[in-house]
Design a binder for these strands. Structure first.
Lengths: 341, 341
DNA sequence: GTGAAAGCGCTAACAT
DNA sequence: ATGTTAGCGCTTTCAC
């Protein structure tokens, strides 16, 4: 396979008995080629296994068919799922992703700027690079004319292109489920308050509580990070507080599992003594002890939708709508039970 | 920032009062430029913030300064850590990574082949794409002249460039630790037997056992996958088998945690009733219940080393040694205790 | 040590 | 509907 000498558009043109631009036209799916010529050229291309050389295309057309990828954390489950979908979608449109490091670190900004100035990516996808100051980057990029789509950081007022999941609805759904089970003292272990997704889940929780007419008890709300450790520590604090609760909404599954560890250490059973609902439906959720009831987000589909949006903006200049919100799904397992007075 | 018009080498040459090739020479660190000229040009470059346009370089030089990345599974902890290190190292050498999908799926082969024929990556890094038939891909790629480095799939006899961790040593270290604690009936929950890393950990386990003079009991060895679920199911089988054991070596932390869940369900305490040691030291290990004793692998460093090797092969044609093996580290926490008859 | 000339493989006007 | 002519921004001979 792949001998060092690569067929060029010239070889195809010669073999097909046409000029180079004509081949170029079929390569780019231009309408102005006769059906027979197009078919004939396509046959030759297939037969030779010809692949256009992307650097040459990029140099001539100012397009690279590569997309920049900026993520806050590669080890995040959200990242791995979203990128899986994004990659598939990108390939289907003839694009590739180029890794552009993380965005949270302000000193990394020059690095991913080089993606634009040096590698000339056609657009960039932010995968939950949603730190406090992220929208600054995004807006600046967008204003400099480069297409940008973000996921996991829903900021509708910004007008930026983004696809996310309905976190308010998800938080509400989780809380309503607990409420429906008869629980009234529902604690919450939240993610970092400077993340929009965490805020929104909190908002959903508050909305659900408000519906019942009883106010949320601030002592039952603990802010933390997205990590297992945070759930563990958060639950310890909750337990020390002595404010009674019979259920908890953990803003992700890792937090939930950390909380369960702390609960077990304290001799409390789940769900007999306290019910707990997570968020994300990570692979471990199904096999944790007990199997975790949780809120599932269609992450892979989000990656696909975000990439589709990005490609659309690149190729058509704009996309409407440019903000897409997916729904969550409640996955009932056995970490929650009816409140039995 | 970034106005649409990008400075070119021509602009630099003009401003510096030299010819274009001279600027090109300093860009590529060629020796044949006088010190003053070089400094002068470099100043202009810095001052203008000039960035060479990689497509043009690639077209002219047949080099792209991009590396292909092929991974079996983006959600794997190994992937996220190795890629983090790899990315940093790549940037330091002026390279970027392009995502090239997963390799296990045979039908994906054409896709990452396009990375080579169309995008002309300078080399490709395989991140534990270590399915049974992987070395076929690798060898074919290497033979077609493209530099390849792999991680997480140690096959020294292949002669391929690779960096990995000493899995035999790691398996031995884990087992010896348990042995040193006085355990003699040590079960093992292994990864997939078609993965070299799993085989090697098993080999280390067997070696350690052999040293003590007592043979391994096949009933105490359960093969599975790398998933949490597999540890859970594996432990259930172990428990049903009725062959007594007081300790278990789980070939990764997720397996270990799954096993602990099953143990808890069965009313057995860790480490009082059974000691368990994991492998990897994932972030959750420290906060699981109980905190997991495990074998740590320097994954980020492996990513850096692999990339360094790849760049070396690309730039110098070869690298010696082209196989690097890192040591593991025993992390003692509290999931193992002395066997108290 | 430095410059002039040519060309990498393709697309983009412009013709026809 | 197709061909002609110019480049895109850089590296590379090969002169001087």
């Amino acid at each position: 396979m792949a001998n060092t000498k690569h067929a060029t558009i010239y070889d195809v043109a010669e073999k097909a008995g046409v000029s180079i631009p004509t081949v170029s036209r079929v390569l780019n799916n231009r309408p102005d080629v006769s059906v027979e010529t197009r078919q004939h050229i396509q046959d030759i291309i297939d037969q030779m296994g010809y692949q256009p050389f992307s650097n040459a295309r990029g140099l001539a057309s100012k397009r690279t068919y590569t997309l920049g990828l900026v993520a806050a954390d590669f080890s995040d489950f959200w990242f791995s799922q979203v990128i899986t979908g994004a990659e598939k979608e990108a390939h289907e449109h003839g694009y590739y992703f180029m890794l552009g490091s993380s965005s949270c670190n302000p000193e990394d900004e020059p690095k991913f700027l080089r993606l634009l100035t040096e590698r000339h990516v056609d657009g960039v996808l932010f995968i939950r690079a949603s730190c406090a100051d992220e929208s600054g980057h995004l807006t600046r990029l967008k204003e400099s004319g480069i297409p940008v789509v973000t996921t996991g950081n829903y900021l509708p007022e910004s007008g930026l292109a983004m696809v996310d999941v309905d976190n308010i609805g998800g938080g509400r759904k989780a809380t309503e489920y607990l409420l429906g089970l008869g629980h009234t003292r529902i604690a919450m272990l939240s993610g970092p308050p400077d993340w929009r997704s965490a805020c929104d889940r909190t908002e959903g929780y508050l909305q659900a509580l408000r519906t019942t007419g009883m106010p949320a008890n601030p002592d039952l709300i603990i802010e933390g990070t997205w990590l297992h450790k945070s759930g563990y520590l958060g639950m310890k604090r909750l337990l020390e507080n002595k404010t009674p609760f019979t259920a908890v909404f953990a803003q992700n599954d890792r937090i939930a599992r950390g909380a369960i560890s702390a609960l077990h250490e304290a001799g409390r059973r789940v769900p007999e003594d306290v019910s707990i609902i997570g968020y994300d439906d990570i692979p471990e959720a199904e096999f944790s002890d007990p199997p975790l009831t949780t809120i599932r987000q269609p992450m892979e589909e989000i990656g696909r939708a975000a990439t589709r949006l990005l490609v659309q903006i690149i190729e058509d200049g704009e996309a409407t709508p440019n903000q897409i919100l997916f729904d969550t799904e409640l996955i009932v397992r056995s970490s929650c039970s009816r409140f039995a007075q």
